Computed example of a mutant assay.
Amino acid sequence: MRWWDIGPVLELEYALFPEDAWSEGMFWSELAHARGAGATRRYVVAELDGALVGYAGLAAAGGLGDVQTIAVDKSQWGTGLGARLLTDLLQHATAFECDEVFLEVRVDNTRAQKLYERFGFVPIGFRRGYYQPGNIDALVMRLTVQGTENPSHG
């Protein structure tokens, strides 16, 4: 994802998450940490016939990764695009030397939960009232990254 992607990303963001969409400033802030030797973020976009149809982001620090966002245009649901975006993020979690990767997902978003479970994420708890408005709980999920067993995080 680059600065010129922010406009199309925001269009998809507001279409998919109208009540709790990220602001333009939030995306700019994340991208500021995605370049250079000290980068701690990975943001990617997916395009089809020149149109943005998905994006995803990962933050990494101290051996921990956090899937910040994954969004796929409804026209692309069921095509495997979400899995490809998640695969990219997890490859970069390994490059960032993450031992574990976390994410939050709406408790009522079973479609996304099934995707994450296929990748080995397991539920570890809830964040009550995490998604606003509506006071919707988030299911917290964790993936232990293979090959990076670290007893201090166990």
Rank of each mutant, 00 (worst) to 15 (best):
A60R: 07
V145W: 02
F126L: 04
I124C: 01
F121K: 02
T40H: 07
L58M: 14
I124Q: 00
V105D: 08
V67F: 05
N135V: 06
I6Q: 03
H92N: 14
R41A: 14
Y55H: 13
R2T: 12
Q132H: 08
P123L: 00
G120D: 03
R142D: 00
I124V: 01
K114Q: 06
F119I: 06
A39P: 13
I136V: 07
G129S: 10
F27G: 15
P123V: 00
E100S: 03
W28E: 06
M141L: 00
A37G: 15
W3S: 09
G25Q: 05
E11I: 04
E117I: 02
V67T: 13
L143A: 02
P133F: 01
V140E: 00
L52F: 05
H92V: 08
A21L: 05
A138G: 06
A46Q: 13
E104W: 05
D5N: 10
F96E: 09
D5C: 05
E149F: 14
L81S: 12
A56L: 10
R41Q: 15
E11T: 07
A138M: 02
N135E: 03
D66C: 09
L58P: 15
P151F: 03
D73N: 12
F121I: 02
W22G: 15
R128L: 03
S152D: 11
F27I: 12
R41N: 15
R106W: 01
G65Q: 03
L12D: 09
V45F: 04
Y131A: 04
L86R: 14
Q91H: 09
V67K: 10
P8Q: 03
L48G: 12
R35H: 10
V45R: 09
L85D: 15
G154P: 03
S29P: 09
Y14T: 12
T148S: 10
E19V: 09
S23G: 12
L10W: 01
A112F: 04
F96L: 07
V145S: 04
F126G: 05
D20S: 15
E13M: 09
V44R: 14
P151D: 07
V122Y: 00
